[in-house]
């Protein structure tokens, strides 16, 4: 047993195996070394080309998702789709009620004929007085 540069205590067998493996990695053919260099450059180039594409893709995806979310929040009430919304579905009925001359007035007391009610009250009071007098 003895040490090696990595600080591990290894047997002679392990040291011999390590020496052989290291030697074989140092004696690679020129073609293999060239292919490894090309592979390294390709990997670094791939990273370089991915950098802007990567950020742009995420920015555009995020923007699209935010737009869809905003549309959903604005146009879709909680728990109902537009077709199920009773208010939205009753539009035609409301228009009919508003335009019908015979309908009950829905716009407050603008159309109340106060003169009629005053006259009716006076008439009723006069009729009561004459009935008591007779």
């Amino acid at each position: 047993m003895s040490g090696d540069p990595t600080g591990e205590v290894r047997s002679e067998f392990e040291q011999r195996a390590r020496a052989l493996l290291l030697q074989s990695s140092e004696e690679l053919s020129g073609a293999v070394r060239s292919r490894l260099t090309q592979a390294r450059h390709a990997a670094l180039a791939a990273r370089r080309s991915r950098l802007p594409a990567f950020s742009f893709r995420w920015v555009s995806t995020g923007a699209a998702a935010a737009a869809v979310l905003a549309l959903l929040i604005v146009y879709v009430p909680y728990g109902h789709s537009p077709l199920e919304n009773p208010v939205a579905g009753g539009g035609l009925e409301d228009i009919e009620l508003l335009t019908d001359n015979d309908a009950v007035p829905l716009n407050g007391d603008q159309d109340v004929d106060y003169d009629f009610y005053e006259w009716a009250a006076t008439e009723a009071a006069g009729a009561t007085a004459s009935a008591v007098g007779s």
């Binding site: 293999v32 292919r35 490894l36 260099t37 592979a39 390294r40 390709a42 990997a43």
Partner: peptide, 28 residues
């Protein structure tokens, strides 16, 4: 790491071209 990685892949696969491809994939 590239030379050792190549030898590790080559020993496992017993094929030089496959080992080179594997190392390149790992680098990528």
């Amino acid at each position: 790491v590239e030379r050792k990685a190549f030898r590790i892949a080559q020993i496992a696969l017993r094929h030089e071209a496959d080992a080179l491809d594997v190392v390149q994939d790992a680098m990528m």
